[in-house]
């Protein structure tokens, strides 16, 4: 499972970086999305994959009955998903405005500030 997920992460990073190198604004934002998915999966797998129950101690007990799964990576990923959702939504609005203002979605045409 780890190997499979590692390949998936590699593909996500590779695809994301490839798309970011393209000149198209839409591909750029898809690439950014893939990159953040790759990072999220990386947290998930780096923290270790194991099966376990919910980390809630049953009523009346003092310890876990079965080895629980680690809840923290999921909390971290959820937070970063929320953040990347907000940032991607903003980037979408920004890119749309830019497209309307500049009249092209070719990044090579946006050289006004490069001097």
């Amino acid at each position: 499972m780890e190997v499979l997920l590692a390949v998936v992460i590699g593909t996500l990073y590779g695809g994301g970086l490839y798309l970011m190198m393209r000149r198209n604004l839409v591909q750029l934002i898809i690439g950014l999305g893939l990159l953040s998915h790759g990072a999220n999966l990386l947290i998930f797998i780096a923290a270790g994959l194991r099966q376990g129950g919910a980390p809630i101690i049953a009523e009346g007990k003092k310890v876990f009955l079965t080895l629980p799964a680690d809840p923290l990576p999921q909390a971290l990923i959820l937070t970063s998903i929320v953040i990347s959702f907000a940032v991607t939504a903003f980037a979408l609005v920004l890119f749309l405005r830019t497209y309307q203002e500049v009249g092209t979605n070719d990044l090579d045409e946006m050289k006004e500030t490069d001097t």
Binding site: M20, L32, L35, S36, G38, A39, N40, L42, I43, F44, I45, A46, A47, G48, L72, P73, L76, S80, V87, A91
Partner: peptide
């Protein structure tokens, strides 16, 4: 955003 993704990946490896 690229820098944030790098930072996040580093955090993930650290946590593991």
């Amino acid at each position: 955003l690229l820098s944030s993704a790098l930072f996040l990946a580093g955090i993930g490896i650290f946590y593991g």
